[in-house]
Design a protein around this nucleic acid. Structure first.
Length: 583
RNA sequence: GCGCCUGUAGCUCAGUUGGAUAGAGCAGUAGCCUUCUAAGCUAUUGGUCGGGGGUUCGAAUCCUCCCAGGCGCGCCA
């Protein structure tokens, strides 16, 4: 966490942004100038739509950066792409960071950076340290991220774990790109499920077992219910993140049991999240929406805007006016509200708190609420944009061990708990595996793979790269060799090996990876990148000795090594995975 | 039946928002440790990108129709 704060506090200085995002920016300007020149010469018309796209190349033989500008303009310019590319290259002003250009394939322009320019990324990294890769794109704007939001009816399961990992990584990415993030956990402490929980605990208090015929309908059957009952009967005091409750030990006081059970399970979940290194700024209780009259106020407003009607004794909202496939009941025949209404009230509350951007991370099994909540917010007619809020939905997690699906946890009664997973494979591996895949594809969590200590296992593979780099620095000191960054930065021209050039390219890409992952709310991009960076590092490490006798080459290689270490640490930090100095 | 998501090597997955010859890891095969950590590296095998049609200079990526799987379709949350 300290690292995160340091990261947020430290702004990248202007002079050091030259080699990452700004490189594309500069190139884009040069191309624009070239197009101006061609327009002046009457070769191109002035009014061409110029959408200048610059990509990093996949293949080093294609240079460092490439543009398809000649391909996209060819048709409207009435020239063939390669010919146009040649004209653009000719008109391109000279720039110190560019070594040469080349026309390739159907008409791509490939740009080769000068060596000094490529090597400059090391200076960027060693000067910016934790801040390398961060940006101020968010301009300090407020964003709220809601995730996990498990109801306090049992331990967190793997699915919650995926939400916790993805949601937390999104928050870290947003912080790294200049947003002011509020992390929020919403839970239902008011509905029927909580009542079932209370009845289940009460049944245990009275000596019933889940298999008994008198066991409550829809009761919870896991062993943890017994733990709650025992604690309640002992009169234990429970301290959860947002509440403190003592059990009265009276098995007939259902309200007391309810309060106690909720607090108890909230504390359990707190411990699960703590073990997972996930924290929240705010816990929001559904019950507070009723207590503060916000649910009633929401109903009133929806009615007054004319989007409701009565039918069959219930109050309906005409959500079909806002894209839903059927209208929804707000108030049931028995006078109670459906879950959907507090959801709308809650999101209105978020809007009123000033969050222009809100991201909800949820399991995809709740995807039907997306349209519904947005429709409800539109019906309020209070200026909320149509697509608000954003949603990130994650698909189901299947846990495998020894080639077979793991389905049961004795403690929880049915599902694999997050705690089981952390206890078995550790926090780092659990976080990595749950965040390293695109959220909207189903995930297979292979326990054997997560446990393996070899390059089967990407977590250790990446961490090992960091530990190796640290080891080099320790060896350097043991040898009594002096190393000063400022001196080394003057000697970078010794980095001529292909493996070194590959690393430089990889390092330069990092800020774009972070920006892209943050913009798309896709943390797995960082994980993929780190795997590649680690691979390039290990390859280099095996091919060349860093601590060579010759001082200037040694200095340059140590600088590169240190730069890689820094970026690996930064990337792992975004994933909430530790960067060990030894392994 | 309707809606959302997914389909890429035997397995688990990437694929820079439409770019160049589709990439990793595992599994398989053959190699590398008196030298900075072998939790590593090197070489190699493996593809109708679910299928058909379309859009254009160019499609794994966009449109459309099929096929298969997951999730959701409640006056439960």
């Amino acid at each position: 966490m300290a690292g995160q704060r340091a990261m947020a506090a430290r702004q990248p200085s202007e002079s050091t942004q030259v080699f990452s995002l700004a490189m594309k920016e500069q190139l884009s300007r040069l191309i624009n100038q070239a197009l101006d020149t061609l327009a002046d010469q009457g070769i191109l018309s002035d009014d061409l739509a110029r959408r200048i796209q610059i990509d990093r190349t996949r293949d080093p033989s294609h240079g460092d950066l490439a543009s398809n500008i000649a391909l996209t303009l060819a048709k409207s310019a009435g020239r063939n792409p390669r010919e146009l590319a040649a004209l653009i290259c000719e008109a391109l002003p000279a720039a110190p960071f560019l070594a040469r250009t080349e026309i390739a394939g159907p008409g791509f322009i490939n740009f080769f950076l000068s060596e000094a320019s490529s090597q400059g990324v090391i200076r960027d990294i060693l000067e910016q340290r934790e801040a390398y890769g961060t940006s101020t794109a968010g301009q300090g704007r407020q964003v709220q991220v809601e995730y996990v939001s498990a109801n306090p009816t049992g331990p967190l399961h793997v699915g919650h774990g995926r939400g916790a990992a993805v949601g937390d990584c999104i928050c870290r990415l947003l912080e790294a790109t200049g947003w002011a993030v509020t992390r929020e956990f919403y839970y239902n402490d008011a509905g029927q499920q909580i009542n079932n929980l209370a009845l289940s605990v009460q049944a245990r208090c009275k000596g019933l077992q889940p298999d008994d015929p008198e066991w409550p309908q829809d009761g919870y059957r896991g062993d943890y219910i017994g733990d709650v009952a025992q604690a309640y009967l002992r009169g234990d005091r429970v301290d959860a993140s947002d509440q403190h409750v003592s059990g009265s030990a009276d098995p007939d006081n259902l309200d007391d049991i309810r309060r106690f059970a909720v607090a108890y399970l909230r504390r359990e979940q707190d411990l699960d999240l703590q073990a997972f290194a996930v924290h929240f700024d705010n816990y929001f209780l559904e019950s507070s929406l009723y207590a503060d009259g916000e649910v009633a106020a929401t109903v009133e407003r929806l009615v007054s805007r004319g989007h409701t009607y009565e039918q069959d004794g219930a109050l309906w909202l005409r959500t079909t006016d806002f894209g839903d496939d059927k209208d929804r009941v707000m108030r049931k025949r028995d006078g109670g509200y459906t879950y959907f209404l507090p959801d709308v009230a809650y999101h209105l509350n978020k809007w009123q708190r000033g969050f222009e951007r809100v991201i909800n991370e949820q399991g995809a099994d709740h995807h039907s609420t997306v349209t519904r909540v947005r429709a409800g917010l539109q019906a309020l007619e209070c200026g909320i944009p149509a697509g608000w809020p954003d949603y990130v939905l994650h698909q189901m997690v299947t846990v495998m061990r020894d080639g077979e699906e793991v389905k049961l946890s004795k403690r929880a009664g049915s599902y694999v708990t997050l705690r089981d997973l952390i206890d078995e494979v550790g926090r780092d591996a659990t976080r990595y595996f749950l965040a390293a895949r695109a959220a909207n594809s189903q995930l297979t969590f292979d326990i054997n793979l997560a446990l393996s200590q070899s390059n089967d296992n990407p977590v250790y593979y990446i961490q090992y790269a960091h530990a190796r780099a640290c080891s080099v620095m320790r060896r350097l000191a043991e040898q009594g060799w002096q190393w000063h960054a400022e001196t080394a930065l003057q000697q970078l021209d010794g980095l001529e090996e292909e493996h070194e050039k590959a690393l430089l390219r990889q390092l330069a890409r990092y800020p774009e990876v972070v920006t892209a992952a943050a913009t798309a709310s896709e943390p797995h991009g960082v994980a993929t990148y780190l795997r590649e960076l680690a691979a390039d590092f290990h390859t280099w490490y095996n091919a060349h000795k860093m601590l060579v006798e010759e001082p200037s080459l040694r200095n340059a290689r140590v600088a590169l090594c240190e730069a890689v270490r820094q970026v690996v640490a930064n990337g792992l930090g975004l994933l909430g995975v530790s960067a060990p100095e030894t392994m």
